[in-house]
Design a protein around this nucleic acid. Sequence first.
DNA 1: CTCCTTTATGCACACGTTTGCGGGCGCAAT
DNA 2: ATTGCGCCCGCAAACGTGTGCATAAAGGAG
Lengths: 405, 405
Amino acid sequence: MPEKDGGKAGGMVRAAGARRELRLPERQPLRQPSRQPSIKDIARLARVSHPTVSRALQNSPLVNPATAAKIRKIAEAAGYRPSAVARGLVTRRTRTVGLVVTTVADPFAGEVACGIEQAANDHGYAVFLANSNADAECERKMVQALAERRVDGIIVTSSRVGSDYLPMLAELNVPMVLVNDQYPGEFVHSVMIANEDGSRAATEHLIELGHRRIAYVGDRSGYQTETERLEGYKRALGAAGIGFAAELAVHGDGRPEAAVTAMDGLLKLADPPTAVCCYNDMTAMGAMKAIRGRGLRVPEDVSVTGFDDLFFAEYLEPPLTTVRQTMRLMGRIAMESLFKLMSGEDSVAQVKVEAELVVRGSTGRVRTNPGPQVQGITTPASTDRSPGTPGTRGTHAQGAGRRLG
Amino acid sequence: MPEKDGGKAGGMVRAAGARRELRLPERQPLRQPSRQPSIKDIARLARVSHPTVSRALQNSPLVNPATAAKIRKIAEAAGYRPSAVARGLVTRRTRTVGLVVTTVADPFAGEVACGIEQAANDHGYAVFLANSNADAECERKMVQALAERRVDGIIVTSSRVGSDYLPMLAELNVPMVLVNDQYPGEFVHSVMIANEDGSRAATEHLIELGHRRIAYVGDRSGYQTETERLEGYKRALGAAGIGFAAELAVHGDGRPEAAVTAMDGLLKLADPPTAVCCYNDMTAMGAMKAIRGRGLRVPEDVSVTGFDDLFFAEYLEPPLTTVRQTMRLMGRIAMESLFKLMSGEDSVAQVKVEAELVVRGSTGRVRTNPGPQVQGITTPASTDRSPGTPGTRGTHAQGAGRRLG
DNA sequence: CTCCTTTATGCACACGTTTGCGGGCGCAAT
DNA sequence: ATTGCGCCCGCAAACGTGTGCATAAAGGAG
């Protein structure tokens, strides 16, 4: 395409009244993809060089305001959109970040992603979404793919990889922030919730209601958040002089289905728990179903606490007492941290946000009389609403996790 | 750089063939924070030209298998990752799609996004995530921004823009697919659910249970899906010879909060409904809360149906009867349609997937005796489980929407 | 009128990759 | 030996943008 006529012929034609280009009007909407106008097209139309167009469009003071206005008008009329990919190539910054989550269908991840997207968008960044399906290998692949896309930074939530990030981070040379999962080293930047505090506050709340036989339904073991929440549960028990019973601490997978069977197992125990502290709201939702499935009632027979305060928590029956995690804010914080990293600061390290206990209707005072509940099937008449149970509709918060040293 | 001397490796060769050399070679090894290796670096290491590296890495038959293997090995060792942005610039295809949703925090959008992401990932595509916050202006901006990123295609779910897409689509010249919102023209490609069928099936189900006074709690009026679902409700009523009562059709906003007040208004009517058909599960969740708030029971006093079959539907108490929308599949279908469009096919047009009624515990036979319910506060003794109520735990599907002509 | 400063613009790169084309080389056919 | 042919491989030109540097125009000071 040696179209180096220098504007001579082009000028004549244009003067003759041929409108700016050939494609839009009517003729060939179905042929070639009718190339988007490039900066050179605009330059030709405005009778300037393309660097001038470039400068005009980024409001550079180097260009005459009058010509800048003219150029902008022409660009606008031509529907010109500068190519972010070409700009990214020369600038070596794509104004793009990668976000890898287990799955956006998970409400927790969705909330975090929402916060991240908003913060990114505020700064003119776009975000690539990648699902890891909670698989370590897949997660690694995703991070690699994002690096190929030359993202300026990466956020990964609920990582399943952990320490492998150190070499990867060194090789990829891309700023990274981890959400809700920390590698117990000092070199990775992360933002997470005060898991231990939150879990402890929930358990203490149950203890204050008189419960002594308190179960814990966790996530798969081995993950950092799971470990911390279990630890908070244990500490609360210890502080109250209640021994930890291994039979009362069971594992689900963070989803309601598994929680149903896990909870059902607890209810089949010879001496079943009167309260259960769940890893998260999804688990609690499953636990409540299992409890109802045995003809028992929440909280009269078994109290339940969750973790996260997902949108549905206050709409469950009874409304769920849970530990609030400000997920959207966490996403925003993660994004802001990443911005700092990308701009060269290296100070962020690890951020921990506080948790807040929200007391609702799913927790109540333990039954004063142990009752004749030798078997799973209890008498349906035992549905006395013991005093001390908060109204099932209140949503006022109470208590708060404190900063963990 | 262009060192094709062959035998010797080193400086003197360069002195001999010093052509239009630049100053890059010796200066850069210790410059910036260890720039990612480029294809030319690999070429130098492998003593070939960079086009050969390019061909070797995409398994071109034009390169000797032996040298290809050697190149791949060197590239691997150097941790070379080809730049997708440079490739996108020359190829004019970024293998990238844009997805704009109201917010990923919405469970429906999350599920759809998940399906889209999976399908895209299967084909080596990455997806840009953009939230429109259900704002038309914001949505337009997002689409523009995605076009600047030179995405190969765009999917927008629950669009708030509608007909404005025709000019935009023509100007941007990017393939687009709309999910769950159709512009009543023929030029846009969309995939949506059989809203009218689904809503009708739900209402018919209520009618079969003996209900006559059936309310409808919708989304904001004016949106396509809302209109269709309302229409399905009306048709079912009409087919059963039940007149449409305007006082029984109210509007929420698709979120539980608004549904609580909307439903509460219905319960305050002189002649309150015995069943309510809700726009979606979020609305139904709010409606159930409002019903409980007045001391009434589901389904004994009021039956409730939803739409979507979100993950929490079967965990509500009672489990929610709802119309299942295969959201993840819809996302996948949308993505596959977009692939066809991107590859030049123009045949997709509009896809409609069937809806399926899932009967659970939130719907039951209408009370045989109208009872003394002059006021909202009814006698708590009226909790007779009338026969005909399906088990509250069954999740078996029944009935299915049919293709709408 | 010359020189210098300021202002506005163009030129020539560069970013990292893909791809059409030409050409060297080995080998078989003539 | 010459020709022809297929196999590899390098050259150069893109793709669309940003930016350092030179420079023309304009204007003021001497």
